[in-house]
Write a protein that binds this DNA or RNA. Structure first.
Length: 272
DNA sequence: ATCCGATGTCAAT
DNA sequence: TTGACCTCGGATC
């Protein structure tokens, strides 16, 4: 379940588990065998998260870059280590402390040069979890875009770490029509949207879940604790409307047509 | 047993 | 704009 909050939790967790230790590195699935052999037994110095990217810095200067993509998963075990599955691309392990992490299905698992790590970070927009004071940078990048704000929020060069669930929830909570051109947002709207992203991602990083509705208990699995994401056809939690879904930027967008109306636009389902 | 979609990204058209 | 890639769990036969 990888949006930015998940990645930041992994960075923290893996730093606690492995940083400052010699780490056994392997690739049961085989596609990272060369890199694993190079890292095996080295000391991990630190782990950092930028947007949805993880960077592991090793003694000697190697950098391991991991991106989970859509289906990637990193499972961390603190005791009773299981055998990795045949699809496990990467295993990090400290047998002495009975700790391991198993990576499956990543979009990226590769060794990169330190300067490539810098370039990677340079092409990402501000990360609400790493740079909460970067509201002005975010607003400046929105201002140059004519595309719908719902599409622009998925562009990692505009803001790093936001994915399909958070874009929908943040636009609902901000009362913004996803189809509005990003550059048409007022400075106040852009600042409010940034604050909302900081709050939502921050809560996600604390809890590990995308729960955006405070009044629904996190333990209540009957209804997803969200306002609009994956709630197409269900009643809006704030009005009598029905949540709609349509493709935007190659993904499914979700919104309440009456709570998120563009100024001057006709009410109702005006989505293309 | 099989199918399908998923909180993502990139290359090819 | 579409397809490919990666894995897994839940829905469906």
């Amino acid at each position: 379940m990888p949006e930015g909050h998940t990645i930041h939790r992994l960075a923290r967790s893996h730093a606690q588990a492995f940083a400052g230790r010699r780490v056994a590195v392997s690739s049961p699935q085989g596609r990272f065998s060369g890199g694993a052999a190079r890292l095996d037994g080295k000391v991990l110095e630190d782990v950092q998260a930028f947007g949805k990217h993880l960077l592991y810095r090793w003694a000697g200067g190697d950098v391991l870059h991991v991106h989970l993509g859509l289906v990637g998963a990193f499972r961390t075990y603190w005791q009773d280590l299981p055998e990795p599955s045949a699809q496990t691309r990467l295993v990090l392990a400290c047998p002495a402390t009975d700790t391991a992490a198993h990576l499956t299905g990543p979009l990226a698992c590769e060794l990169i040069a330190p300067e490539e790590a810098g370039a990677l970070r340079a092409r990402l927009g501000p990360d609400p979890l790493a740079e909460p004071d970067a509201s002005d940078v975010f607003a400046a990048r929105l201002a140059r875009r004519r595309s719908p704000i719902g599409q622009v929020l998925l562009d990692q060069a505009v803001v790093a770490g936001v994915g399909n669930a958070y874009r929908a929830e943040a636009l609902f909570l901000s009362g913004l029509d996803p189809q509005r051109p990003a550059g048409d947002l007022t400075p106040g709207e852009a600042a409010g949207l940034w604050q909302t992203l900081c709050r939502l991602l921050g809560e996600g990083a604390r809890t590990g879940r995308i729960h955006t509705v405070a009044t629904i208990a996190p333990a209540d699995d009957a209804e997803p604790a969200r306002y609009v994401y994956a709630r197409e056809g269900s009643p809006c939690r704030r009005c009598a409307g029905t949540i709609e879904s349509w493709p935007l930027g190659g993904r499914a967008m979700y919104a309440c047509p009456s709570c998120q109306v563009r100024p001057g636009a006709a009410r109702g389902s005006a989505h293309p």
